[in-house]
Design a protein around this nucleic acid. Sequence first.
DNA 1: TTGAAAGCGCTAACAG
DNA 2: CTGTTAGCGCTTTCAA
Lengths: 354, 354
Amino acid sequence: MTTQIRTKNLSIHDVAAEAKVSIATVSRVINGKDRVAPSTRTRVEEALKKLDFRPNRQARSLGLRRTNTIGLVVPDLLGEFFSELMHGVDTAARDSNMNLMIIRAVDSEEEEAVCEEFLGSGAVDGLIFMISQLDDKAVHELARYKQSLLVIDRDLADLGIDNVLVDNRSGGYEATCHLIEESKVDHLLFIGGPEKNIDSGDRLLGFKDAVRRHDMKLEENFSFFTDYNYDNACAVAESIVRRIKSSKGRWGIVAANDSVARGVIDTLLDHKISVPDKVSVVGYDDSQLARLTRPTLTSVRIPLRELGRTALCLLRDRINGVRLEQSTIVFKGRLIRRGSSIHPGTTPAPQHES
Amino acid sequence: MTTQIRTKNLSIHDVAAEAKVSIATVSRVINGKDRVAPSTRTRVEEALKKLDFRPNRQARSLGLRRTNTIGLVVPDLLGEFFSELMHGVDTAARDSNMNLMIIRAVDSEEEEAVCEEFLGSGAVDGLIFMISQLDDKAVHELARYKQSLLVIDRDLADLGIDNVLVDNRSGGYEATCHLIEESKVDHLLFIGGPEKNIDSGDRLLGFKDAVRRHDMKLEENFSFFTDYNYDNACAVAESIVRRIKSSKGRWGIVAANDSVARGVIDTLLDHKISVPDKVSVVGYDDSQLARLTRPTLTSVRIPLRELGRTALCLLRDRINGVRLEQSTIVFKGRLIRRGSSIHPGTTPAPQHES
DNA sequence: TTGAAAGCGCTAACAG
DNA sequence: CTGTTAGCGCTTTCAA
C-alpha cells in the first residue's frame, strides 16, 4: 500500500499571503462570525475566490472538536425499510448541513464496538441506531454516550438515551379493527414475524386488544410466526388452507409485513380462495409491494421518513446542547385501505370459490 | 447553537505519561509499523488498555492527509437499485477498513459541488458516483480529480477516470433473443425508460441487434418511452391493448425495468390478455418485484453488489497508488427466466382469451 | 530503540 | 478591526 502523494494543498496561509492579511483574518471571513472591515473582507474574499480555496475539514474538526457528521448504524443496507429511514435522516442532515456516515453493525457486539470506535475517536458527533440489537449489558455500557446517541424503535428512556419509536400496538389494533368493523370477518389470524421480535409482539398485543374490544374470541391456534419473508409465509399459509376452506364465514389475517401478506395471499389464491372476499388480509409497512401487486394490499404505513427526519433533528439538538433532557417521540402508523381487504371502497368481487 | 463542552478527552500524551515513554513511542505501537522494544511495547499496550484509549481520527487524518473514508454520491437513497449497489460498496469498504459517507446530489451542479467540497477539503479520500448526471462541462472540470474518482454506469475512460459499467446492450440483446428463440414470439415491442436515458437506449440497441440477427423486422411503432414507473407503464400498455388483441400470433415485450414490466402485465391482464401465452414480457433489474409477484417476472439481473464491490476496490487501489492507469470493468447482466415469458421451464397455461 | 520537536491546517484567546 | 500565538492530537523526521 503506497502512500499517495497529494498535490500540494493550499492552506489558509496562502490565502492570507494573497490578501496580505493574517491567517486569523482569513479564518474570520471564512467563518463569517467575527467582524471584519468591509474592505479587508472584500480583499480576502477575492483571494479566496482567486485561489479557489477550501478549508481543510480535518483541521477544522480538530480545532472545533466537532465533525459535523453523524453516523447511521444499520444492521443492513438492503430493503425499503432502511432506505426510507435513511432517506428521512439524510434529508434532515442535508437541511442541517451535516454529513452522514453509514455504519453497518450486525449484532450487539458490533454495535457496541461501533459506538466506542466512532464516538470514542471523535469520528462523528453522534450516532443514530436504527433498530438496535444491543443487549442489556451493552446498552448500559453505552449509557455514558447518551448525549450523542439516538435509538430508533427501542425505548431506552430509562437510560437517558433519546429515542424515536413506532407504536406497533396501536398499528396492530387498527389493522385488526379494520378487519372486524369494515371487512366484517368472522375469524381472525395473526401471522407475525420471529417469535421474539418485539415489533411483531406489540402488533400481536394490538391484535388481541381489538379482538377483546369487539367481544370476539380468539380462535384456537390463531397466531403464527415467520421469518418475515415470503416463502416462509407461503408455508404457513399452506398449513391453514384446509381450515379456511372447510369453514363458514369470512376470515381476516393480520400479517407481520407486506412480504408475509403477499406470500399468504398468493398461496390462498393458488388454492382458489378468494381475497378479499373469503379472506381479507392486512399487511404492514406499506411497501412498494403493497402498491404494485394485485390485489393491492391494505397495509399499515409507518411514516419512516418522518421518523428519520425526527431522529436526526433530535440528535442534532441534543448534541448542540439545545436540549439537555432525554426525549422520546412516538409515531403512529396509518392504515392504507386497498384491495386485499373489504372496506367501503371495495367493489365486492364475485365469489369464485370452487 | 451552543457549543458543546466535551468531557475532556484522553490524548496520546496521557498514554505516554502512564507508560512513561514519549508520545512518539506510543504512536509507534499504535500503528505497529515501526520497531519498538518488546518490553516497552508491552508497557504501552497495557497503558492503552488501562486507559481505554482511542486515537483521535481528525488528528490522525490531518497528519496523514488521509481520512480512510470514501464518499458515495447518489441521486437518491430510495429503491432497491441503490440499496444493492450500496450494499456491495459497503461490504468491500468494511473488508478494507474504510468508512463510507453518503452524499446525495441530485443534478450535475450538485455533483460538481460535492466533488469540489469533499475532495477539495480532504473530507474523503475518494468519491464513487453512482449513476452520474454530470454534464460534459462538469465532467471535464472534474478530470483533475481523476485519481480519486470512480464513476459507475458511465464511460469516462477518455478522461482517465475509472469506471465500472453495465453492458446494457448485451442485456437488451439477451432479453430479446430469449423472447424470439424461446418464447417464439411473432411481434416485438420495446418499452423503455426516458427517451434520452442512456441505459435504456443501449438496451434498445441490443433489442434491435437481436431483431436484425434473427431476420425479423421491426414493427411499425415498436418502441415507447416511459418514466421508468408503474403508472406510466400502465398508460403505455393501455395504448397498445387493442393492437395486441386484434393481432395474430404471440407478442414479446422488453420492458425498461421491472416496474414497467409489472405495469404492462397488470394492464394486459386487466384486459384479459394472457401473460405469458399471448404476450411474453421481460423486465430488467430482477428486483424484488420480479420474484414476489404473479406471474413471476423474467428479468435481466444486473450483479449490482458485485458492481459495488468492484467499484470500491478499484477506487481504493487507485487512491493507494497500487494502480496508476485508468481502468474500466464491464459487467454483463444475466437473464433470469420466470413465469412472464414462455421458455423450456414454463408449463403452457390454457389460453383464455375472450 | 527512543525522544524532541516540527509540522498537518485551522480556531480562538489575547493583545494591540 | 487585525495580528500573534498557543493549541487541537497525531505522525514523522532527525538525533541521540
